[in-house]
């Protein structure tokens, strides 16, 4: 059984005053007994508690800077929590920035292998997926060329095919992404819907409220890193929209 349990979770995000301090400055501050650290922290998530179980489709909404992507990365275990308890059970697949980590000097195939190995595949398990990826991307011989020879759309196709070739228990998606031309967009949408249906738990961040209303069972509304409201999708989205309308009116 897959589940995500957050109990009073806090996340402090350390930020340096300047981009970084030098070793020289660090030593000098120590010698002069000045305050050693120029690091401040921002409370990105505060006191978050929720349970997500098998079959749930959860959308995360909120204004920019509300902590939506941070929450997704905290569920994935990328960010360490500074308080509370985080318990995640199930194989997690994160679709954050799907083109991140591609080596543009390496061929398409090579990138497919490296990315798949990162996700825990082995040379034996990857074999059965290669044809599917090749067919879906329709990149043909281009897969033997370095990525620097690809157009942006072609890179997106490859990234999308790779990211959606997995069958995870918990699927985390940051924004619904666009993937090239119109024809491919249709194909991508069908594949995405299939992936969303096969995962046991889906948590997605998005600004497309119509899609979230149609697809999600539950919505978590974040505001300044705290839960403003959580509940059935239609109800919470309606409340969020009227709040946004009020803010617009006030502005």
């Amino acid at each position: 059984m897959s589940y995500i349990q957050f109990s009073n979770v806090d996340l402090e995000y350390p930020i340096r005053e300047n981009h970084a301090i030098t070793f020289k400055e660090f030593v000098l501050r120590g010698l002069l007994r000045k305050k050693k650290t120029a690091v401040q922290s921002v409370r990105a998530l505060a006191d978050l508690s929720f349970d997500i179980h098998d079959g749930e489709r959860v959308g995360i909404i909120g204004l920019n800077g509300a902590g939506k992507s941070t929450l997704l990365r905290t569920i994935a275990g990328v960010y360490p929590i500074s308080g509370g308890q985080r318990d995640v059970n199930g194989a997690v697949c994160s679709l954050f920035d799907i083109t991140l980590g591609f080596d543009f000097n390496a061929t398409g195939w090579r990138n497919v292998h490296i990315r798949s190995y990162l996700h825990g595949e082995t040379p034996a398990t990857i074999k059965s997926k290669l044809q599917d990826i090749a067919d879906f991307t329709e990149l043909g011989e281009f897969l033997n060329l370095p990525l620097r020879c690809y157009s942006t759309g072609m890179v997106m196709r490859l990234a999308f095919a790779l990211s959606t070739s997995r069958r995870p228990e918990i699927l985390l998606i940051d924004e619904v992404f666009s993937t090239g031309d119109m024809l491919f967009q249709k194909k991508a949408e069908a594949r995405m819907r299939n992936l969303l249906q096969t995962a046991k738990i889906v948590v997605m961040v998005g600004h497309d409220l119509a899609f979230l209303k149609e697809f999600c069972t539950t919505i978590i509304w974040l505001h300044h890193g705290r839960i403003q409201a959580v509940g059935p999708a239609r109800e919470i989205i309606q409340a969020y929209q009227s709040n946004a309308a009020q803010l617009l009116h006030a502005a």
Partner: peptide, 9 residues
């Protein structure tokens, strides 16, 4: 960094 920001490894 690109891999570190994607999943816990």
């Amino acid at each position: 960094a690109a891999y570190i920001r994607q999943q816990q490894i």
